[in-house]
Design a binder for these strands. Structure first.
Lengths: 154, 154
DNA sequence: TATTGTTATACTCTATAACTATA
DNA sequence: TATAGTTATAGAGTATAACAATA
């Protein structure tokens, strides 16, 4: 059997997903490059992005946001803390919990990071204004529906 | 449930990109899970996906597709070859080059892998048919424009 | 007993540099 | 000299399991 014909052809969801996969793979390099410019590994950058200055987060919450085991967070947080970008603080009501707080230095780098990450890559920037708005709206619906619990199927 | 407090971006392209970034992170976990079910690490899965049965590829081409240094490909190929999914063959005209060919076993696993990867994740599958089609069309334009821009910028 | 975070272990991915065998 | 691929090395991410302190 030669290469299988794209069975995605009649399913717009699958087609959209195939295209999105290509786009996402391409952007991995970009994400790593931006983080690297600031001396951050990709997961460190993602962690710093999740930590809003002024609202400390327990390590368990960061583990969930990163989508990885809690044991990995220890190392990621160690490296960010060693660079003085965040710090561990004890929680008040539960002494097992450690809260992660962004330092001033961390907030500065975080600001630069977010600004650079939010610059649209050529693929998106090259779209028409109309397409950009439509894309944004569709993605909002996609992510909101998932977050809400995927109750609305059509 | 309210959507997460995304900072109000000034232009729709940047907003769309911010949303895509979130989706990218979500997808990483899913991709790793699908590959893991087949006993493949993410980069191994991506490599196997790139190698079309019947059309051997030089290692340098795979390195470019993976977007990483050629030295890393040695290890990735080693592991795929150790499992009997691909094999190294000498090239005809240049004895430095090694061509990578998918075995029958590799082709089988590759087929399963592609089928699973092409299933749209909940975020996309949950969209309306109309949104799916619109998303597909916009992404096609995005990736086509990029490809066109690349070749003319060269 | 259950949970939070840590440590120990092992594997994979990644980049850089030095090496080989060809060209 | 230049190129394709390898080896050596080091740092980072990941999962699993076992552990301490606390709940």
């Amino acid at each position: 059997m030669p290469s299988p014909p794209r069975r995605a052809a009649r399913n717009p969801g699958a087609e959209a997903w195939a295209l999105l996969s290509d786009l996402l793979r391409v952007q991995r390099t970009r994400y790593a490059a931006i983080a690297g410019d600031l001396g951050l590994a990709p997961s460190q950058a993602f962690a710093l992005k999740q930590l809003q200055p002024g609202t400390p987060l327990p390590m368990s919450a960061l583990a969930e946001a990163l989508g990885c085991d809690a044991s990995n967070v220890t190392g990621i947080v160690d490296r960010l803390e060693a660079r003085g970008l965040i710090e561990r603080r004890g929680a008040e009501h539960d002494r097992r919990v450690k809260m992660l707080a962004v330092t001033q230095k961390g907030a500065d780098i975080r600001g630069t990071l977010l600004a650079r990450l939010h610059e649209a890559p050529p693929e998106i920037a090259g779209l028409s204004r109309t397409d950009q708005r439509e894309l944004r709206d569709i993605l909002r619906r996609a992510l909101d529906a998932k977050a809400a619990g995927e109750s609305s199927r059509r």
